[in-house]
């Protein structure tokens, strides 16, 4: 049963307001180490040089989208097992199925309440204390 404070998180979304909102939600849940990046490329470089336990990434981003990012993480020998939760739109069922095939740990549909994010994280990590 890990304490949220011990889990390092990387939040990836190309929209500044969305990153800020997710950061606030995570901080309210007790997470202390929350980093964020506006693109998958920047996030990939950052988590390779300083590993995190959990990546929360948007799907719909230009250049490298969430699925490409997930694949890049899963095929990396060092960070390949990092927990990955994808943020998707309501009509992205096909995306969720592709993400599942690539090894995503869970997904959250936007717009989501902090409670929904907490539930999805707890399904992977267990209860956050």
């Amino acid at each position: 049963m890990p304490a949220a404070a011990a889990i390092k998180v990387m939040v990836v979304d190309d929209q500044t307001s969305m990153r800020a909102m997710i950061r606030r939600a995570l901080q309210d849940l007790g997470f202390k180490d929350v980093r964020d990046k506006p693109s998958a490329q920047e996030a990939l470089a950052a988590v390779k040089s300083d590993r995190v336990h959990l990546i929360i990434s948007d799907y719909n981003m230009p250049e490298m989208d969430g699925l490409q990012f997930l694949e890049a993480v899963r095929t990396d020998a060092v960070i390949g097992k990092t927990v990955f939760i994808m943020l998707t739109g309501s009509s992205d069922k096909e995306i969720v199925q592709k993400a599942a095939a690539l090894g995503v740990n869970n997904y959250v549909v936007k717009p989501f309440a902090p409670a929904a994010l907490k539930e999805k994280i707890e399904r992977v990590f267990g209860e956050l204390t």
């Binding site: 309501s90 936007k110 717009p111 929904a116």
Partner: peptide, 15 residues
């Protein structure tokens, strides 16, 4: 009203 309803985080059960 919400722009799109889901608040619970999705109805596709994969996990």
């Amino acid at each position: 009203v919400p722009v799109h309803a889901p608040a619970s985080g999705g109805d596709l059960e994969l996990f």
